[in-house]
Simulated assay, not measured.
Amino acid sequence: MTTPTAPLTVDELAPRLSSATVIDVRTPGEYGSGHVPGAFNIPLDRLGEALPSLRTAAEKGELVVVCASGTRSGVACGRLADEGITAASLDGGTQAWSGGGHALDRPAGARAVWPMERQVRLVAGSLVLLGILLDLAVPGARILSFLIGGGLVFSALSNTCGMAAVLSKLPYNRRPSGDGGLDATLSRLTTRTAGTS
């Protein structure tokens, strides 16, 4: 087990971008909406499958993990530390990167997808409102609002999000067919790290 590294700021990462291996743990849809240049997309829910490649990348040089705001990348760094892999999270994620005046890469033809945190807020808020409105016609339906509220509290306390895990499985958050998927990403990552001395 390794102690997680302190998060990096945008100003710390920018000059080291060409030598660091950057892993974006957002969904493929979010990644396609814009990512740190050169970042490899390994969704948080697939991190376990990438451990051998990530271990090699960390042994060859600096490993930096990115998400939209820094929350998921912090979780990923904790998981990697549990596996003995040293990685740093980008403080503020791609939001801070673009907010700092740095460009985001966008694959040709990629469609914009909301960040996962925004998707969760939309669905949770909609379900709470639905529970309240349904309660007007069906007494007791407000239990739905209670359950969503309880789920959000649990999510905050455990730093996990079951709703995000479900939403990440929706088609617009998944990889487009024909891009090779995670195997192709891991192959490119292996090729890159093999060229690093």
Score class of each variant (00 low, 15 high):
P7Q: 12
A57M: 05
R142E: 07
G150P: 08
A6P: 13
G180A: 03
L144G: 02
L8D: 03
G149C: 05
L133C: 15
V120Y: 02
G100R: 08
A112V: 09
A108S: 04
V128P: 00
P52F: 05
W114L: 15
Y31D: 10
S19D: 14
H35Q: 05
S168R: 07
R26L: 14
G70H: 02
T71V: 13
P139R: 14
R26W: 14
F154H: 10
D24F: 02
R46G: 06
P7G: 10
T185R: 04
G150D: 12
P7C: 14
V66T: 02
A58V: 14
L51Q: 04
N41W: 04
T21Y: 06
R174M: 12
T3H: 08
L147N: 05
I143P: 04
P37D: 02
M163Q: 03
S18H: 05
S177T: 11
H102A: 02
G92D: 00
A76Q: 13
D45V: 02
T191A: 12
A6F: 12
D45F: 12
H35N: 15
T56I: 11
P171F: 04
S155K: 00
L44D: 11
S158C: 13
V65N: 07
L130E: 05
G178N: 07
A58T: 12
L47K: 02
E59T: 07
L136H: 11
D183T: 15
S98V: 13
S53R: 08
Q119R: 00
A57Y: 06
A164V: 00
L90I: 01
L144C: 10
P15S: 02
T160G: 05
N173D: 03
A39F: 11
R192Y: 03
C67T: 08
S98Q: 09
R79D: 04
R121F: 14
A14N: 13
S73Y: 11
R142T: 04
T56V: 02
S73C: 09
S168D: 11
A20P: 07
P176H: 04
G32V: 06
D82Y: 04
P176S: 06
S89Q: 03
S126N: 03
T3W: 00
S155I: 01
G149A: 03
R106Q: 13
R118P: 03
R111N: 08
T71H: 04
F146G: 11
T3M: 07
G48E: 05
R175W: 14
T56A: 12
P4I: 07
S145L: 15
L152G: 08
L144T: 07
L44N: 08
I148F: 01
D45S: 15
L127W: 05
P28K: 08
R188V: 09
L127N: 09
G84S: 13
R121C: 12
P139H: 13
L17V: 11
G195C: 10
W97D: 11
A184L: 10
V128H: 11
V75W: 08
L127D: 04
G125A: 01
V120A: 00
E117S: 10
P115I: 03
R118V: 01
G151T: 12
T71P: 01
E12M: 15
T71L: 04
P52Q: 15
D105P: 08
L182N: 03
G109C: 00
L80C: 04
P43L: 13
A112L: 10
V128G: 01
R46Q: 14
S89I: 00
L133E: 11
R72T: 14
L104A: 00
A68S: 07
T190W: 03
A103R: 09
A156W: 11
A184W: 10
P171T: 03
V66S: 01
C77Q: 09
M116S: 01
